[in-house]
Simulated scan of single mutants.
Amino acid sequence: MPNQTKDAFMEEIMQMNVLDTHTHLVGDKLRATDFWQIAHYFWLNRELQTGGYPADADKLPEQQRITAFLSAYHATRNTLMNWVFTQIFKQLYGIEIRDEQSVKAADAAVRASASNPGWAQTVADKLAIRRFVVNIHEHAAFEGMRDPGILIPRIDGKLNTWVKTVFESDERNMAYERAKSELTELLQSFKNDGCPGVMTTLPAYEARADRDYHLSEVTEKSQIMMMLLHELCAGAQKNGLFVQFFLGVERSWCGEPVPVNDTERILKLTALFERYAIPFELVVASELNNLDVVQAAWNFPNVHVGGLWWFNFRGSTYRDVMQYRLEAISPIKSSLIASDARCIEWSYGKILLVKKLLAEFLFERIESGWVDKETALFAAREWLYGSAAKRYGILGD
Score class of each variant (00 low, 15 high):
residue 283 V to A: 01
residue 306 G to Q: 09
residue 292 D to R: 07
residue 327 E to A: 06
residue 236 A to V: 11
residue 226 M to E: 08
residue 329 I to M: 03
residue 247 L to E: 11
residue 238 K to R: 14
residue 280 F to G: 01
residue 231 E to A: 02
residue 274 E to F: 02
residue 246 F to R: 15
residue 334 S to I: 01
residue 232 L to A: 04
residue 227 M to Q: 03
residue 261 N to M: 05
residue 322 M to Q: 05
residue 285 A to W: 10
residue 245 F to Y: 11
residue 285 A to E: 12
residue 296 A to R: 07
residue 333 K to A: 05
residue 261 N to W: 04
residue 274 E to P: 00
residue 328 A to M: 12
residue 289 N to C: 06
residue 300 F to E: 04
residue 244 Q to P: 10
residue 279 P to C: 08
residue 264 E to I: 04
residue 274 E to A: 14
residue 299 N to T: 14
residue 300 F to G: 09
residue 235 G to D: 04
residue 275 R to T: 15
residue 258 V to S: 10
residue 269 L to W: 07
residue 264 E to R: 12
residue 332 I to D: 07
residue 229 L to H: 10
residue 311 F to S: 12
residue 263 T to S: 10
residue 317 T to P: 00
residue 251 R to V: 13
residue 297 A to W: 06
residue 245 F to V: 11
residue 329 I to F: 03
residue 245 F to N: 03
residue 264 E to H: 13
residue 325 R to A: 10
residue 326 L to Q: 13
residue 309 W to P: 01
residue 281 E to T: 11
residue 271 A to D: 14
residue 264 E to F: 14
residue 261 N to D: 14
residue 286 S to A: 15
residue 239 N to W: 07
residue 328 A to D: 12
residue 317 T to F: 15
residue 304 H to P: 01
residue 289 N to S: 13
residue 246 F to K: 13
residue 226 M to W: 04
residue 238 K to D: 11
residue 302 N to D: 06
residue 266 I to R: 06
residue 288 L to A: 12
residue 282 L to N: 05
residue 221 K to N: 11
residue 273 F to K: 13
residue 245 F to A: 09
residue 329 I to R: 00
residue 220 E to V: 07
residue 263 T to A: 10
residue 235 G to V: 08
residue 317 T to G: 06
residue 237 Q to N: 05
residue 245 F to D: 03
residue 249 V to L: 08
residue 332 I to C: 09
residue 227 M to I: 00
residue 280 F to K: 08
residue 291 L to Q: 15
residue 320 D to H: 12
residue 259 P to Q: 11
residue 332 I to Y: 02
residue 290 N to Q: 13
residue 301 P to Q: 12
residue 299 N to S: 15
residue 267 L to T: 14
residue 238 K to P: 05
residue 266 I to K: 06
residue 331 P to V: 02
residue 269 L to C: 08
residue 220 E to G: 14
residue 293 V to A: 01
residue 341 A to W: 04
residue 292 D to L: 12
residue 290 N to C: 02
residue 226 M to G: 08
residue 340 D to I: 00
residue 300 F to P: 07
residue 304 H to C: 07
residue 253 W to I: 09
residue 331 P to Y: 02
residue 332 I to G: 00
residue 221 K to Q: 14
residue 234 A to I: 06
residue 310 W to H: 12
residue 328 A to G: 02
residue 221 K to E: 15
